[in-house]
């Protein structure tokens, strides 16, 4: 019953760098856009940053609540690490029109495809 919640108790694992963890995410796409959904429980809008640099989309989420020192841990399953997700975007996207929305701990990023990358139907004359 004496588990302590410190950053050190969460050993680095696959996809997890020193003091960050990789959130669960999913990617869906249609002919117009990519839709990326990232699970970021505990992150508020102010602790979130999204960057697209070259072809890497990186999402960083900082936990908004630091637990008071007076709280004695009895049972710990929630991680205290911040989130980081890096995705390589290989299809050209319209960086100006990227939209992001954070709701109930879920981040939704919409990356519209550039017109050139969209599939075109060719009519047979």
């Amino acid at each position: 019953m004496n588990t302590t919640c410190t950053a050190n108790s969460c050993a680095p694992f696959v996809g997890v760098t020193e003091s960050l963890r990789k959130p669960r995410y999913s990617v869906a796409n249609d002919n117009e856009a990519f839709e990326i959904e990232v699970e970021l429980p505990g992150v508020s809008k102010s602790g979130l940053s999204i960057d697209l640099e070259d072809d890497i989309l990186s999402v960083r989420g900082q936990l908004s609540a630091r637990l008071p020192d007076s709280w004695k841990p009895l049972h710990c399953e929630l991680s205290t690490l911040d989130y980081q997700l890096r995705l390589r975007v290989t299809t050209p996207v319209d960086a100006e029109k990227i939209e992001a929305k954070l709701e109930e701990g879920i981040l939704k990023v919409t990356l519209p495809l550039k017109a050139a990358a969209q599939a075109r139907r060719i009519e047979v004359a």
Partner: peptide, 18 residues
């Protein structure tokens, strides 16, 4: 789930994204 205790309360936290 997480469970913490201080002098006056217990605090239970549940992760419920979405």
């Amino acid at each position: 789930t997480d469970l913490h205790e201080d002098t006056d309360h217990f605090h239970a936290r549940f992760e419920l994204p979405g």
